[in-house]
Structure formats: structure tokens, C-alpha cells
Design a protein around this nucleic acid. Structure first.
Lengths: 106, 106
DNA sequence: TCATGGTAACAAAAAGGTTCGTAATTTTAC
DNA sequence: GTAAAATTACGAACCTTTTTGTTACCATGA
């Protein structure tokens, strides 16, 4: 992880949300509880390494909740935390902004 | 630039805003017109190559306006476009979300 | 000869992918 | 009835690709 160059909270958020996967994962987790294999099906091109890495990052950031159940085969469930759910409309806002600015500039 | 894996506008925005620099540049351009060297002073650790690359990306995305004046030494000015200015409160929203979720999780 | 804003070529660093291995229980095969 | 294989989520090692940094260079007018 790169070091921060400002004391700006926006830079900190972007450290978590930057990249192809974090917002997609949040997006798919909107639908409710998902297991690791569900998320891989949702994102067929993500490698399991990236998926674990990104899920850990989101967990550390308090966006995603990980619940592991005892027994085998392993069963692990992922959900958005409350904070994660509050993030969704903000991301939607960005999406709308993009669509509008796109139709404005062509 | 990586290919998109979904048809989601959020993924498209993130392709533009991902990384350390785009939001910082937008942030500094809030203050008004800046020249290339101003932005380097604002972000002392960015290399000039990255600065040109990121500015081009933001220009292509319709966030930043580049104005080149005739004569030497070259004089080039950068401003936020209208769309760029509308982006600012959205980024602020993310920053506030981060601060709140951070104090909630510790 | 310095200043400004930029490009091109190469080097270093970071991100990402692939493969293999692991756990404990259930399923299937012989 | 015993052995082999599948299951699920993940870590470690290794290798490739992408991103970023470094250096050198260009233009020209004061």
C-alpha cells in the first residue's frame, strides 16, 4: 500500500476504493449476503488471490463484514456493514455524475 | 488502460478517479486556475510524467480544461470544467463518509 | 543559459495471475 | 469396507504484466 501524501480524507477513501474491484464488490454485496464463490461467479475475471486481498481490504476499512462458520467444507459469508451500505448511494452519485458529464461532453 | 468488466457507470468513473492523483488534482484545482508548475508544487511527490499523464486522463474524461497560450516559455493553464466542479461535492461526500465510518469503527 | 511544459526510452517497483498445497467431512468408486 | 476424490476458502511461492519513476532531450525567447 502506498503512503499518503496529503492529510486529506479523500485520499484515504480512494486508497480503499481505487481499482477495478472494490466498487464492484460493494455493488454486488448490495443484494445481500454472499459467499466467496458467489462473488467469484459475479466477477468471473477476478482471481481468488485478488478476491481475498480486496475483501480483506474492505473488511479492514469497515465496509465489509466477514463471518466464518465452523465445520468443513469451510463456509464464509460476506455482507456490507452499516458503513458499507451508506457508501452505496455515494457511489451511485458518482455513477450518475459520470453519465451526465458524459452526455454533456459527448 | 484496463478493460471494463461490467457495464456499470461506476466502474467507468473509477477508471478515471482511481489512483492517488486524480482526486488530489481535482482538489487543488478547486482553488481556481493552476499552471503545470503550480500543480507540481501542490503535489511535490508526483513525477512530471505522472502529472502530464493524469492531467491528460482528466482532460479526456471532461473533468479538466487545458488552455495553452502562444509564446515561449510555454504557458499552459488548467481549470476544472463544469463537470469537474460538480464532482467536487461528491468527493467531499466520500471524505465525510470516511471520517464518520472511521470514528464508528475506531 | 534558464525557464516552461512536454515527449521518448529505459529502469524500477507494484499489482496481478497461476499453480500448488491445506483443512475435515462427505461423496463416489472399486 | 476401504481408498480416492470433491468440497470451500484461503495462503505461499513464483512469474508476468502494468504502472510509475528517472533521465535525457526538445522548443524558443529573454
Amino acid at each position: 500500500m502506498k503512503e499518503l501524501v496529503s492529510r486529506c480524507p479523500i485520499e484515504e477513501v480512494m486508497q480503499v476504493l481505487s481499482g477495478r474491484w472494490p466498487t464492484l464488490l460493494v455493488y454486488y454485496l448490495q443484494d445481500g449476503t454472499k459467499r466467496f464463490s458467489d462473488l467469484r461467479r459475479d466477477n468471473p475475471t477476478i482471481s481468488h488471490k485478488m478476491l481475498t486481498l480486496e475483501l480483506r481490504k474492505l473488511e479492514d476499512a469497515g465496509v465489509v463484514q466477514r463471518t466464518q462458520f465452523p465445520g468443513y467444507p469451510l463456509r464464509v459469508e460476506y455482507d456490507l456493514t452499516e458503513a458499507g451500505q451508506k457508501l452505496v448511494p455515494l457511489l451511485d452519485g458518482l455513477g450518475e455524475w459520470w453519465l451526465k458529464s458524459d452526455e454533456a461532453t459527448g
